[in-house]
Design a protein around this nucleic acid. Sequence first.
DNA 1: CGGCATCCTAGTTGATACTG
DNA 2: CAGTATCAACTAGGATGCCG
Lengths: 130, 130
Amino acid sequence: MDTEDAGVNGQFDVMTLGCPSRLIMQRLGDKWTPLVFLALKDGPRRFSHIRDGIGGVTPKVLTQTLRTLERDGLLKRTIYPEVPPRVEYELTALGGSVLGPLEVLSQWSQSHAASIMRARDDYDELHDAQ
Amino acid sequence: MDTEDAGVNGQFDVMTLGCPSRLIMQRLGDKWTPLVFLALKDGPRRFSHIRDGIGGVTPKVLTQTLRTLERDGLLKRTIYPEVPPRVEYELTALGGSVLGPLEVLSQWSQSHAASIMRARDDYDELHDAQ
DNA sequence: CGGCATCCTAGTTGATACTG
DNA sequence: CAGTATCAACTAGGATGCCG
């Protein structure tokens, strides 16, 4: 039997223009979101730790990403009123439930990077030759 | 089918700036890629069928997406020299191996869309409250 | 330390129209 | 039918500098 979510979970369908579920999927797949999830997979982490763990993020973009994920209930932000200030981020239960799939995707990417680059070269050689 | 892919996850690391695996993961997560995969999950499909199945794609963007995926060896494009012209797209074995994870993501998005929107409202109420 | 505010650019997307 | 071409627009992302 085909278990269509559309029936069970209501009216959400990523194939439909403007459907919230599509926007959410796009969030999950955007440039930095998966990397933030990976950075938080082992528990709460500080801002600077996340920043250092993700090669190439600027503070501004990291902040934006973290805020969006917090707003969506995927991670929790805790401020410790100390000097110097300390802020920790950690995945919520909801956020934790996507971690698995995102890890699968990252590992797939790492595992198949070589063959994809090879496919790319083959394609370019055929279509772009000289 | 060769197994030259990095069996270990040591060679490629998505956390590293400029690593090809990161670019590949970003490709998988871009605006239209997952939707194309979903449109092709049941076998070969024609251009117009894919276009009609994905709400809001323009031909230009769809073509771009399909070309990129073809170049990366994730799908195959077959031209049938008929009148009228017929072109079919289908996932390769490599492409088929990411379909599962992408479906998981889309279903997760559909299943949790409601609670995420609710989390969003809660957040806005707390932080935007006047 | 952990952010905002600003400005700016570069790549992406979209609307529209046209073609093999 | 299955695209391509062109132009316009948008916006994510980066550089820089200041603040609690």
